[in-house]
Computed example of a mutant assay.
Amino acid sequence: MVRLVSIWVERSYFMIFQEEFEQMRSLEQDLTFLSAKTEFDESNIPFKEKNLGIQNQDGIYTNLGLLLSDQCKHTIKVAVFDGEKQSEFQDRNEFAGSLFKQMHEVYSYIDFRNQKHSNFSGLKRINKRDYPEVAIREALLNLIVHREYSYSASSFIRMYTDRIEFTSIGGLLKGITLEDIQLGISVCRNPKLANIFYRLELIEAYGTGIQKILDSYSGSEFKPQFVTTENAFKVILPNLNHPKKNSKIQEELVIYDCPENKILEFAKAHTQFNRKDVQDTFNLSQTTCGRILSRMKEEGQISQHGKGKNTFYVLK
């Protein structure tokens, strides 16, 4: 009971804070809404800017309006790798514009690469795609609806031969744990944005997305994984048709999980640091340490300076 009360208090606080962010005046006022109007028209819902919170009562566009406008400054970067590591790019793309435009274009980009494989059970052919479509849909919507838009860094989607990773800016809200969201408890970071996606029937009741992802892998030896740090949330979808066992992803999670949190705390206490400092402090191998620092740099958590032996990092 005490736990539920605590969650309710934290939820109320963050909903007030995020509503203030969504309602704050957008720095950009020369906005258009071609993609948003198309989305509303297809759902037969009137596009009324003030009623939706896109404009305030004075006719000023809000941050929520900026997110749905064609001039939205936040982007999603997608990279496709040839293999299970980031050693060789196959393709990369950056998607911009209204969140609705990004949603459709990113889904199509992934869906095109979601290959179908066939096998036979007796005389019957069974087709199975690499990733459940519902899992991709829910992971993408989670990336868009629940990210922290007060930061300008892009969201990332990385496609490997054995998995897809969806990484959004903003960790879990205070008072909520990974176990909580897997039980269906949801504290919405962007309540007005979520409400619009709900009205358009793009999402259902809050807190169902994670369970849908888990259910889509029901009966499979492969299981999706969820990783959270202080500043990011990652959904990892394993490739159902990949020959390797799920143990590969479990092994990678040792790299993805706790070290980033610890390195962030280490960075806060030091003006600058190098790879050897981190390697010795956390007893990591040179390869693992380099991989973590590269990932943190890509995700905008730290910045790299200098060259060669004089390379050092600072908290961004």
Rank of each mutant, 00 (worst) to 15 (best):
H270E: 11
D277M: 02
N283W: 03
C289L: 07
F273S: 04
L293I: 00
T287W: 10
A267S: 06
Q272F: 12
G300S: 07
I302T: 05
L293R: 01
G300I: 00
R275K: 13
K297C: 12
F273E: 08
F282L: 09
A267W: 00
A267L: 02
R275Q: 15
K276I: 14
S285V: 09
R275P: 14
L284C: 05
R295D: 14
K307V: 11
T288M: 12
Q286H: 13
E298L: 03
R291E: 13
Q286E: 15
S303Y: 09
K268F: 06
H270S: 05
K307N: 12
Q272I: 06
K268S: 04
K307L: 11
K268Q: 13
G306F: 07
H270P: 05
K307R: 15
G290I: 02
S303W: 00
F282R: 10
D280T: 15
G290L: 00
V278F: 08
T271R: 00
N274Y: 04
R291F: 08
F282W: 09
T288C: 14
S285F: 05
A269Y: 08
D280K: 12
K276V: 12
G306C: 01
S294G: 08
A267F: 03
Q279M: 10
L293D: 03
C289H: 07
I302M: 01
L293G: 05
R295M: 09
L284K: 05
Q279E: 12
R275W: 09
K297W: 10
H270D: 11
S285D: 09
K297L: 11
Q304D: 12
C289K: 01
A267P: 02
K268T: 09
G290V: 04
S303C: 10
R291S: 08
F273V: 00
H270T: 03
V278P: 00
E299H: 11
K276R: 01
N274C: 08
D280M: 14
H270Q: 05
D280H: 11
H270C: 03
K307T: 15
D280F: 15
T288H: 06
G306K: 01
T287Y: 06
F273N: 01
S303I: 07
S285L: 10
T288V: 12
Q272W: 10
C289N: 04
Q304C: 12
